[in-house]
Structure formats: C-alpha cells, structure tokens
C-alpha cells in the first residue's frame, strides 16, 4: 500500500473519530455526573438529525447556519427527558440499574416510534448544502468538506466543554455534584437543577453531532442504533465519565475502524473496533481513563 493511500485512510479515520468522540462525550458526561447510562442516546442523535432535516426543509437555510437552533432544541429535549423520565428513575428504591436501563430504553422506543409516525420509515437526506459533496484535495489525500467541518466543530466543542467545566460556576457545580451528591446541597447547589442542566448539556452535545452528521449521512428512524453502539464502546473504552477519555477513545475507534476496512471485508469493519475494545477492557476493566 502506498503512503498516500495509508494517509488517506488515517485522515478519514481521524475525521470520523472526532465525530464519534462528539457523539460519545454527552453520554460520558451524563454518566460521570449521575451514574446513568442513557439507552436512548442513539435516539437523541436521530432526533437531532431529523430536527436539522425538518428545519432545512421548511426554511431552506443552510445546515451550517441552522446548527445553533438544533443544539438549542436538543438542550430542551435533554432537560425534558430528565424532568419527565430520569428524575423518576433515580428515585427507584429497588433495582435502580435495571430501572434506568429499561426506562431509557422505553424512551428510545417512544422516540423511534414518533419519528416513524411523523417522518415515515423512509431514508432522507439533505440534498443541497454549501458543503455537501465537496472535497478538499490535500496533496492527493481527498477529504470531504462535511467531515472536515464535523471534525473542526468537534474539536471546538471539546475546547468549549473544557472551558465550561474548568472556568465557570456551572462547571464547578457540575464537578462538585459528581464528587458528592449529598454535600453539594449543604453549600446551596440544587442537585436536581444541576442534573437537569447536565442532561441538557449532554443532549446538546449529541445534538451538535447530529446537526453535523445530517449534512452527509442518511436520516431514518433507526439511524441511532449503530452510532449508539459505537458511542457505548467509545465511552467504555475511554472510561465512563471521562471527557478526555471520550476524545481519545473516539479517535482510536475511528482510526481502527478505517484500518480494519483495509484488511477485512467492509461488512466486518466494526469487528476490529469491538475486538480492540474487549481486549482493552480485559486488561483495564474500567477503560483507559476511567475511575471505578
């Protein structure tokens, strides 16, 4: 294989890896905050993609400009999911783990059903946009603009998230709540409010990835499933709750997936990622950067 072909695979892997990281970080954030795995995470992504599709369809404005609206909508969806479902799941006296899994799984089915009801099971895509179908030629390495855009957005989002957590009062409240849920009440932090905002932030981040993905990927009611599985693998690989871990693991997943596609038939491209994940987990049961 030529160096150029290898660079091509590597670059594609890094770009998709950045998007995987962005999909995963919301899941990891919520888990770190309150030990809840959201089994509707893939459906949040799907919802964001449909939101983008619907907005473009109605307004005919470019997806790049509509992105903040989708992110805002998803923030509200996240807060609503917390207030309407998760808050009650946290109160379960018995089997809390299973209640959370199946309450969020039920939510996933409802969202999927609604998407199918309003948008039909048909595959949609956003045909015309500024970036759609354009590629950048970097010395023989071809990079599609939508993916470059996604990668840049992802890096900016991670930067912003880092600043939010380390520099703002909300970030401090977030960190304090994850350290000790009981003690924060003593210093006047409303735990419920932090959780609700945490869910909003988590959903907004996955909403951002959906807004990016919608530019170059098909949109259908089950689109969330495969991405959610990648996100779970990414989060477990990086370590539940670790934001830096999600970024590193996302990149690893993207690159390994791209490299596997060179060796194995394309249908088996995920096998490489899954095997790597299992291998890492058996050596480090709490992931690369996880605390257990």
């Amino acid at each position: 294989m030529t160096t150029q072909a290898f660079l091509q695979v590597l670059a594609s892997g890094i770009l998709i890896g950045l998007i995987y990281a962005l999909i995963a970080v919301g899941l990891s954030l919520i888990f770190g905050l309150m030990d809840v795995v959201n089994f509707a995470h893939g459906e949040f992504l799907m919802l964001a993609m449909y939101a983008m599709f619907g907005l473009v369809f109605v307004t005919a404005i470019d997806p790049v400009l509509l992105m903040p609206i989708v992110v805002g909508v998803m923030f509200v969806v996240g807060v609503a999911a917390y207030a309407g479902v998760i808050r009650f799941a946290m109160r379960a006296k018995a089997n809390p783990g299973m209640v959370q899994i199946f309450a969020t799984f039920g939510l996933a089915l409802v969202i999927q059903g609604l998407a199918q009801y309003f948008f039909t099971p048909d595959y949609r895509n956003i045909g015309n946009s500024w970036l759609g179908g354009k590629t950048l030629n970097l010395g023989g390495v071809y990079l599609p603009w939508p993916q470059i855009y996604g990668g840049v957005i992802s890096l900016l989002a991670f930067g912003g998230l880092y600043l939010l957590i380390t520099r703002t009062d909300f970030g401090k409240a977030l960190e304090a709540t994850r350290e000790d849920q009981g003690a924060v009440a003593l210093v006047g932090i409303d735990r419920n409010r932090v959780f609700a905002l945490g869910w909003g932030l988590g959903a907004a981040l996955v909403g951002l990835s959906g807004a990016v993905l919608a530019v170059f990927y098909y949109i259908y009611p089950q689109v969330g499933g495969p991405f959610a599985l990648i996100a779970y693998v990414t989060v477990a690989l990086g370590g539940f709750g670790s934001i830096f871990g999600a970024l590193v693991a996302g990149l690893i997943v993207g690159v390994v997936e791209a490299l596997t596609a060179l060796i194995l038939p394309p249908a088996l491209k995920s096998v490489g990622v899954y095997s790597l994940y299992l291998a890492v987990l058996f050596v480090r049961p709490s992931g690369l950067f996880g605390r257990l």
């Binding site: 309450a103 039920g106 999927q112 059903g113 009801y117």
Partner: peptide, 16 residues
C-alpha cells in the same frame, strides 16, 4: 410506528 410508541410507553411506565 404507533405500536412502538405504545410499547415504549408501557415499558417506561411499568419500570418507573
């Protein structure tokens, strides 16, 4: 997709 909505609601309500 209405069947999914009802099924999902049932799962959600019972588990909660």
């Amino acid at each position: 997709g209405l069947d999914l909505v009802i099924y999902g609601l049932l799962v959600m309500v019972v588990s909660l």
